[in-house]
Design a protein around this nucleic acid. Structure first.
Lengths: 238, 238
DNA sequence: CCCGTTGTTTGATCTGGCGCAAGGTTTGCC
DNA sequence: GGCAAACCTTGCGCCAGATCAAACAACGGG
């Protein structure tokens, strides 16, 4: 049940879009077609370009989004410029839903790890959506739950595992979220540098590089520049 | 604006309770008095005893709670029995709100760090509360937001700070949440062992003990068995 | 008051992984 | 085709902090 817009006609106007094409990507399962139409009429489409931010932490939370295509990285930057990647958003996921947590500013930065498209609503419609569309409320609830789970898991990992295992877990999580079957194995379907992996696991790009080479030697992974392919997921450490 | 039931008549029946006494502790600020009464009529009171669980991870999420008095620790246990404390719940906070995240089982254990009382509703009334009482929805939204913030912060700390700083941060956070002014300084107002602190920061009780003694020597803290008092918060490392 | 339990301290040793350094490879642009 | 920028690899030394070990202190119940 992976959803994403495989190929997308790059007319970024909403008028071009067939609701029947978009619907399967949206996370609003049990939503009456008329309600969906209503919601789409309030939306705009935003083209997100790799490595650019959709919003930054501290910004006024004036929109919320559903990713249609591409990959978003949700991250925080510390005082001394260090980046910490908290999670990845895949097509079909909501993001920037500050309203769901009673915030009026974004608490994190959303940067595109791979170019794509996002559907975008102004925050003003949030309350109305919540009140009018039970399916929307259900979707936000699910999103919050999934996010909370992921963050908890991350905290536990950081508290108990050592670097090697944390990197392995991060890779496995991405494989699960964005794994593409290829002739060589399961490939993480967007560009990912050693640096990126280190920012996800709280380590250095050096350590990531070392473990990756090591796993490469034992045939567990196969990784090139900005690409990670897993041959034998089961052999990654715990 | 700290709330808590300073002294509590230990009749655990709800009939004894004056809504006027409980109301200031509850997180439902803008709630009509009649609605409040309605809600209280559906609640029960549970006495939580120090070191006992109110619920465990995996349990069916059949109740949700507001802590009236005492301190709850929210934690996860790893396969090999290690405990990771994710956050502390103080009087006035909701906990066990699995429904707010679309879960039907608890994802974490709630164990009392200090004995107290919790108000308790059966999960069946959740949906009705959400639909009927805007103040209730607002409160859960706030709770989710606060919790998300805290978890994010924790992830960033674990990823970027070293042990010494993480311990300092953990102490400062507890002081902010549960600090009591005493003649000797700001005291964390519930028993807290070195082991507890290590489970909050992903380190060992040994390291916690070492840093605490060190800070003791330089007069920054003053800690006895299960007690931590901070004399000069500003001098704790970053 | 004694004794078991629980919590704390401190030393000695060992090591994962960081910091630093230097060089190699791939990519895209002019 | 050449050059700069971005990305990756690997070696080496060092240290924060884990692990192991042992003893001490406080407390609470019988």
């Amino acid at each position: 049940m992976k959803r994403s817009l495989q190929k997308w006609q790059l007319g970024t106007s909403l008028d071009d879009i067939d609701p029947g094409v978009i619907a399967p990507v949206l996370p609003f399962d049990d939503l009456a077609p008329t309600d969906l139409k209503e919601m789409l009429s309030k939306a705009t489409i935003e083209h997100v370009t790799s490595n650019e931010s959709v919003f930054d932490e501290g910004d006024n939370a004036d929109h919320f989004y559903v990713l249609l295509d591409g990959v978003m990285r949700i991250l925080r930057t510390t005082e001394d410029g260090e980046q910490v990647v908290v999670l990845h958003v895949m097509p079909g996921d909501m993001f920037g839903i500050a309203q769901a947590m009673g915030h009026d500013t974004y608490r994190m930065t959303a940067r595109a790890a791979a170019s794509g498209l996002a559907m975008c609503w102004p925050s003003e419609v949030w309350e109305q959506f919540i009140r009018s569309y039970p399916g929307f409320r259900a979707a936000t609830t699910q999103a919050l739950g999934a996010r909370a789970d992921e963050m908890q898991e991350k905290i536990v990992e950081m508290a108990t595992l050592k670097v090697e295992q944390r990197i392995a877990h991060a890779i496995l999580r991405l494989i699960k979220k964005a794994g593409k079957e290829t002739k060589h194995g399961l490939e993480i379907d967007f560009p990912l540098t050693r640096q990126d992996l280190s920012e996800m696991t709280g380590t250095t790009l050096h350590s990531v590089s070392r473990y990756l080479s090591q796993w490469q030697k034992s045939g567990i992974v196969e990784s090139k520049r900005r690409r990670v392919i897993v041959r034998r997921p089961a052999d990654l450490p715990v």
